[in-house]
């Protein structure tokens, strides 16, 4: 493996966003950073900055209010990127499924690469999920831009992110 391909896998910077869950998974994500689990040994840092992130950890069932922010954050993360849905809510809505104010999971709004089940997901599972995500990340380059199919059909070139955002908002 060349140094460039290796460095893509070895340095995942994390962005973490809660789309309206109960904060249980978020506490577990923060536990992953503590000395007991220490994800920095894989090179992971919690950046809190979408523009410098590679791995997008999303928790929560995506409430209608969070939807737009989620799309906005997703578009701000530069490719190559992977999305990890952490917790039952993020996977399919969990206990909030079919409530009037939720979208029933992250994959209804943005493409998801890895699903980490559990309520709340255990730190071991989160680490395992991110390591799985890194395998997927190693196959991606900055050329594959991932968006839902209906966006790709309408905007094949994807040069104007603002228009893409407008379109995704309407849906």
């Amino acid at each position: 493996m060349s140094i460039f391909a290796l460095s893509r896998v070895k340095s995942p910077w994390i962005l973490h966003y809660d789309t309206g869950g109960c904060n249980g998974c978020d506490i577990e994500i923060l536990a992953v950073l503590t000395p007991r689990y220490d994800v920095e040994r894989f090179g992971m840092i919690n950046r809190g900055n979408p523009k410098q992130a590679d791995v997008f950890l999303v928790t929560g069932p995506v409430t209608k209010r969070c939807r737009e922010r989620l799309i906005n954050l997703y578009l701000q993360v530069p490719e190559p990127k992977v999305v990890v849905a952490v917790g039952s809510c993020a996977c399919d809505g969990g206990v909030f499924r079919n409530m009037y104010n939720v979208e029933n999971g992250v994959d209804k709004v943005i493409p998801v690469d890895v699903y980490v089940p559990g309520c709340a997901a255990r730190p071991h599972q989160i680490i395992d999920g991110v390591v799985k995500a890194l395998e997927i990340l190693s196959k991606k380059t900055k050329e594959n831009i991932e968006l839902p199919e209906y966006i790709k059909e309408r905007f094949p070139s994807l040069n104007d992110r603002r228009k893409v955002l407008e379109e995704m908002r309407k849906r």
């Binding site: 140094i3 460039f4 290796l6 460095s7 893509r8 070895k10 340095s11 910077w13 000395p35 220490d38 920095e40 040994r41 894989f42 090179g43 590679d54 530069p78 490719e79 190559p80 380059t141 900055k142 831009i145």
Partner: peptide, 26 residues
């Protein structure tokens, strides 16, 4: 990391970070 009783990243981690940054979409 050692001061916080963690294992910490490998010593060449900053080079991984730099090469990764160069490969991101501008």
């Amino acid at each position: 990391a050692r001061m916080q009783n963690r294992v910490g990243p490998p010593i060449v981690q900053p080079f991984y970070d730099l090469f990764k940054l160069l490969q991101k979409r501008p």
